[in-house]
Write a protein that binds this DNA or RNA. Structure first.
Lengths: 332, 332
DNA sequence: GTGGCCCACGAAAACGGTTTCGGCAAGATG
DNA sequence: CATCTTGCCGAAACCGTTTTCGTGGGCCAC
């Protein structure tokens, strides 16, 4: 199916056929239609190869991730794929599995395939080394922050999300708020703890004990809840670093006969439906808005492709999802 | 960075440079090295355009999914991406979101990008319409079965997996085995129930009541467990259609004072670590081996690319993961 | 020493496409 | 009627690459 086939079938020269198919101006409407019809009849694949790609864009972006299996990359990928699809772009997916050699290999591969740009997807807002110097096309970091401030990183606003959660608790009259979360080696854990602290300070409240850092598991949630209740039996709300922890905390509270939310309110984080919506009771939690984060990253990649590269860190706000674990809504 | 640049830097003709870079035979070793070095120094992108793609393969496959957000597509994608990466192939990802129009659009897009083949990833072993007639390149269905028996589908062996689980329970001396599972509109639910029934029949046992079909949620697991215990208080094992259900069942059993596994053993399905490993007690469950399923699909796609297309249905066996919910291991 | 052979290489053609540019016809203008 | 403009089209040049095919030279056998 070559262009000349189309041209001869349409009774024009290859040059005219080329122009017609590429939507250039200097071709009569009737002629264009003839060519398009001929192309359709021969099911000619108009673009795709050779110089079509040489000068222009390939309309393809490379998406580089380290932990596709993780829970977060997926949502970002989904949002990015959607945003790209809307602009008729495609995404070449590569999972480096956290291996630097694999990553370099994939960067080379994607460059060889002439991608127009890169989206580097992290899995925890963590700060990681900039890859930009190896890549001659625009790069945007999503859910990961590049060490190089000249790069553009789009991350989730963990501190802001934690503030949403904390303000919600304070607004509902909770005064002795504990915090159970993951390892303090995680930036997310630290940022969320910081957000909570800020709100408590502003409200003139003391936290119910120091944040309990541990691991991101239901098991630790269950255990930490016992510790917290033993140390501070008067606690009336627990803000959890994620929904798994919250589910574990809820388990323990039930075991100890505390009512949720009457005695103790719980707020989770991540809005991981399987845990949050199916918990007893369903969890109030903070949605990271990861799909939107992916879309935001794509939007900025477009800007960079159009010659307007950004830089710095963009914090994508989260969204409080209110369910039963903090009681009925309060009217301000 | 044109090939002639590389050629002149290496002191050879473009023809020789082309041959050297493409690994053709009729070029001396020393010359080849010179060319490769020159290409490296100029960071020349060897292939990517024009005839490089025209005659040969693009080394790209399209991966079409309907529910990337679901829990299963991810693992398959991961396995496929890995298998493809090992062969220096790349994957163009498209999520049709269950919309037929989007799917057709993506098929056209991917064909325009000259993909060498397609992998169509489903999300539940379900039988779906064949897309092969629209696609002039090889197609393999993964975790989905095409209606056209001439197509090649790789699916998870739900019946076999259920047999593994049931045999495990029988081997541990359980005699009154109930079954709680998802909607019977799901093939997975039906197949797993059938696998259980087969084993019980072979062992000469009667099932503890009919399978309780409901929904794939922890909530239904909790509710159905109450129903089952009310109807058959003597039940000594419950096989659950997935791990969420199993977690819910475990909740209820604990609430009702039944010990796990002493009084009642539980087996889940899916080996969804977050639920299975973190359950109280950790769940014995069946791993779908989805990553391997993805890799298997890729393997068969390669065969098809090499001119050996397969057909029919390949059932990828699952794997029993034994944890505490069925008690300590038994020596045969 | 001479003939034959094979191997490595390069000139040139092919490939499938785009872009430039000149020319032709039709309509506008004088 | 002559001239000018304008809009379409196609011949030809071009692009970066692969492929064909001819050639020169080294090597070995005789």
């Amino acid at each position: 199916m070559t262009l000349s086939d189309v041209a001869s079938r349409a009774g024009v020269s290859v040059a005219t056929a080329s122009k017609a198919l590429n939507g250039r101006a200097e071709v009569a409407q009737a002629t264009r239609e003839r060519v398009l019809r001929a192309a359709g009849e021969l099911s000619f694949q108009p673009n795709a190869l050779a110089s079509g790609l040489i000068n222009g864009r390939t309309r393809t972006v490379g998406l580089l991730t380290d932990e596709l299996g993780g829970r977060f990359a997926m949502s970002i990928l989904l949002g990015a794929e959607n945003a790209l699809g809307n602009e008729q772009m495609s995404v070449l997916l590569c999972d480096a599995r956290g291996d630097a050699i694999r990553r370099q290999h994939y960067i080379r591969t994607l460059l060889a395939r002439q991608v127009d740009g890169f989206i580097v997807v992290g899995d925890s807002n963590e700060v990681g080394p900039s890859l930009t110097q190896d890549i001659p096309v625009p790069v945007v970091y999503a859910y990961a922050e590049s060490t190089d401030p000249r790069d553009l990183s789009v991350i989730a606003d963990d501190e802001g999300g934690a503030r949403l959660a904390a303000e919600h608790l304070v607004l509902h009259g909770r005064r002795r708020i504990g915090h159970i979360t993951g390892p303090d080696s995680y930036r997310s854990a630290r940022d969320r703890a910081a957000g909570l602290r800020t709100v408590l300070t502003e409200a003139g409240l003391d936290p119910a004990g120091d944040p309990l850092f541990g691991e991101w598991s239901q098991r630790w949630g269950r255990h930490a809840a016992r510790l917290l209740l033993a140390a501070r039996p008067d606690v009336d709300a627990i803000f959890c670093g994620n929904d798994q922890l919250a589910a574990g905390v809820a388990d323990t509270l039930r075991d100890l006969g505390r009512r949720i939310p009457d005695d103790v309110a719980i707020v989770g984080y991540d809005n991981w439906e399987f845990f949050a919506a199916d918990c007893r009771p369903p969890l109030t939690t903070v949605d990271l808005n990861l799909e939107r984060l992916g879309a935001t990253a794509v939007k900025h990649l477009y800007a960079a492709l159009d010659g307007n590269p950004g830089s710095g860190v963009i914090r994508q706000p989260g969204r409080l999802v209110v369910r039963e674990s903090t009681g009925p809504a309060v009217h301000r």
